[in-house]
C-alpha cells in the first residue's frame, strides 16, 4: 500500500470551507466560521469548470474564472454571487430548478451583517422549533421576494456571509420578518 497522500492547500481550504457550509446549511440561522473572510473559500470549495456563476461584484470575477467556472447570465447560473447589494429584483432571475430536478435550483451568496439589525424568525428542517436571528443589510423586500419565488421543492438556497462568518438558509426554511 502506498503512503497516505498529503493534503494540498487547495484541499485544506475546500475541506474546511465545506465543513462550515454543510454545517450551517443543515442548521439554518446558526453561524459557522469559514477559513478565510469573504467568498473565496466558498468559491474554492464548490466551483470548477462544471459550474456557471453569475456575479454582481466585479472584484470576485477573477477568483471565479480561475476555478474554470463560466461567468454566465443569472438565468443560467448554478451559483449566484449578489455581493453587497442583495438586490431583491435580481432574485427574480435566479434558477429555481423543477419539481423533477430540485437540485437545479441555484445557490445564492450574499453579504450581510449577522447578529444585528432586522429580526427574523426561522422555522423548518434544521431548526429546533423556531429560531430568532438578526440580519442587517438585507431588505424586508428581499425576504418577501424569496418567499414568493420558492415553491418547495423548487427554490434556491442562500448563504449569508459576514467576513468569515457564514449562515445558511436553505429553501426549506420559512423566514418571517419581525
Amino acid at each position: 500500500m502506498q503512503a497516505t497522500p498529503s493534503r494540498s492547500e487547495e484541499e485544506v481550504l475546500g475541506n474546511e470551507a465545506f465543513d462550515a457550509l454543510l454545517w450551517s446549511l443543515s442548521r439554518p440561522g446558526q453561524v459557522r466560521t469559514l477559513p478565510t473572510a469573504g467568498e473565496t473559500a466558498l468559491i474554492s470549495a464548490l466551483l470548477d469548470r462544471e459550474c456557471a456563476a453569475s456575479c454582481d461584484d466585479p472584484l470576485l470575477i477573477p477568483a471565479i474564472m480561475q476555478t474554470g467556472a463560466a461567468v454566465a447570465d443569472i438565468a443560467m447560473a448554478d451559483h449566484v454571487f449578489l455581493g453587497q447589494s442583495a438586490n431583491p429584483a435580481r432574485l427574480k432571475g435566479v434558477r429555481l430548478g423543477s419539481d423533477l430536478y430540485p437540485d437545479d435550483g441555484a445557490t445564492v451568496i450574499v453579504r450581510g451583517q449577522i447578529g444585528s439589525g432586522r429580526g427574523l424568525t426561522l422555522k423548518g428542517p434544521g431548526v429546533d422549533g423556531a429560531l430568532d436571528i438578526q440580519l442587517n443589510g438585507i431588505s424586508a423586500e428581499f425576504w418577501q421576494t424569496r418567499k414568493t419565488l420558492i415553491r418547495y421543492p423548487m427554490g434556491f438556497d442562500l448563504f449569508v456571509l459576514d467576513g468569515s462568518k457564514v449562515m445558511g438558509l436553505p429553501r426549506s426554511t420559512n423566514v418571517e420578518v419581525l
Partner: peptide
C-alpha cells in the same frame, strides 16, 4: 459537495 448541499436543502 455541491450535491450534498442540495440534498440538505431538500
Amino acid at each position: 459537495r455541491r450535491k450534498m448541499l442540495k440534498a440538505v436543502a431538500v
